[in-house]
Simulated scan of single mutants.
Amino acid sequence: MRLFSLLYGVVVRNVDRRVPAPLRPFWTSPTGPQTVFFWGPVFKWSVVLAGLGDVLNRQPHLISKKQTLVLALSGVLWSRWSMVIRPRNYNYMACNAVMSASQVVLLWRSISNDLVKVWQDFRSPRGVEPNSTVPLSKQDH
């Protein structure tokens, strides 16, 4: 691990000399690229993008309600935490807020899919397939 720290220090010192003046406030900010407060959220966005991919592609019956609920609540919790800590980390807050929102959409899709199935089961007569060609009067006898 010491090797990575040394390598990171060399990269930061070399880039520091080349940062243009308009970007210098961002570069030297407490949540800028020289700190973990920048790189943590940058890499967490990959988790968020995976969740957004699930929103677009995952079939509702494959969505885990427990996992989705935990991720949604985790996003709310860490969004709040990012505004309490110093320095405030708006990138981290946005990352967690988007994660929470995407998980709420997934949870809604899963629950609504289950409700549609329950409604279809409730509406169909017991023991009869919805596309059955046998008249109901013959099934009763």
Rank of each mutant, 00 (worst) to 15 (best):
S124V: 15
L3R: 15
S29P: 00
Y92V: 00
L115G: 04
F37R: 14
L3K: 13
S5A: 09
R17N: 09
P125E: 02
L106W: 07
L73H: 01
D54G: 11
T35V: 00
V70G: 06
N57G: 10
N113R: 08
L71R: 12
H141A: 13
V47Y: 11
T133S: 11
R80D: 07
V10R: 09
L71F: 14
Q67W: 14
S110A: 15
V42H: 05
T31Q: 11
V118I: 11
F26S: 03
S100T: 06
E129Y: 05
V128H: 03
L23K: 11
Y8G: 04
L107Q: 09
S110Y: 11
W81G: 02
V55C: 11
V116F: 12
N131L: 10
T28M: 08
D54I: 00
R109K: 12
G53I: 02
V55A: 09
K66A: 09
R123F: 05
W108M: 14
G51T: 12
Q59T: 08
S79V: 01
V11D: 06
S100G: 04
L106Q: 00
V98I: 13
S79E: 00
N91K: 05
M99H: 06
S110Q: 02
L6Y: 13
Y8E: 09
S79N: 00
S46F: 13
L49A: 14
G32F: 06
V55R: 06
W108E: 07
W108C: 01
R88D: 10
L107K: 04
A21M: 12
T35I: 01
F43A: 11
W119D: 13
V42W: 05
K65A: 09
Q120L: 07
P22N: 11
L107G: 13
V116T: 09
S100Y: 01
S5K: 03
V19F: 01
